[in-house]
Write a protein that binds this DNA or RNA. Structure first.
Length: 197
DNA sequence: CGGTTTTGACCAGCGC
DNA sequence: GCGCTGGTCAAAACCG
């Protein structure tokens, strides 16, 4: 598979400060009915030095150390080799995906929750778990279960403050949020019915 | 029985 | 070149 929007040159993803967590995406990342999870964006100026933000946000270490000041950032919105397109799975693809630095949209935020997995309305399938250095908690890897969607997320709990979960999203969903649609459909129907008169 | 989770193995990048 | 680390695969186990 040839990259759609690559000029053949890898480039470090220009990271920008982000104002999470309600980062607007084409279909919205978060359902309106977020559960017990309390989102904790930059409102609380915790820098959480024990989190490896560099590692989380820069694929293969593409972030310069100058950016350490901003704990919550997103990567370039460049579309990568896979961006939005489904990835035909075979081992060559796996290799090539490691070869290139990912430039997909990528951002992280922290939540204070007893549950590792916050319900963002999408369906995820876990495909891996790894113990990470300098953390007593493993990092979990999830992939969106939608056929054409290649969005991934990583979830890791802080070792210092075990109440805080760091979620890193990579990519943008190319389909509507199922739960959101479930919630909104009856409302829309009702509105359509009422506006007929 | 189909979808999801678990988990060990594999692989590539990076630093030394 | 080698070891470490992070990310992914895939088979087996698990679950509703």
């Amino acid at each position: 598979m040839e990259p759609l929007h690559m000029d053949g040159q890898e480039r470090p993803a220009p990271l920008q400060p982000l104002l999470p967590p309600l980062n607007p995406t084409p279909y919205g990342l978060f359902s309106p009915s977020l559960p017990s999870t309390s989102l904790q964006p930059s409102l609380e100026p915790q820098l959480l030095p024990e989190i490896d933000w560099i590692g989380l946000l820069s694929a293969q270490g593409g972030l310069s150390t100058d950016n350490k000041v901003a704990p919550l950032m997103e990567a370039a919105s460049l579309v990568s080799k896979n961006g939005g397109e489904e990835e035909k799975g075979d081992k060559d693809k796996r290799k090539s995906s490691k070869m290139k630095k990912t430039t997909r949209p990528r951002f992280a935020f922290q939540t204070r929750s007893a549950d590792d997995i916050l319900d963002d309305g999408y369906r995820w399938r876990k495909y891996g778990q790894k113990a990470v250095k300098n953390s007593s908690y493993p990092r979990s890897y999830y992939r969106c279960t939608h056929h054409t969607c290649n969005v991934k997320k990583q979830i890791q709990r802080l070792s210092k403050d075990t109440g805080i979960v760091v979620t890193t999203y990579e990519g943008i969903h190319n389909h509507p949020c199922e739960k959101l649609m479930e919630t909104l459909t009856p409302l829309l129907r009702q509105m359509q019915f009422l506006t007929r008169f």
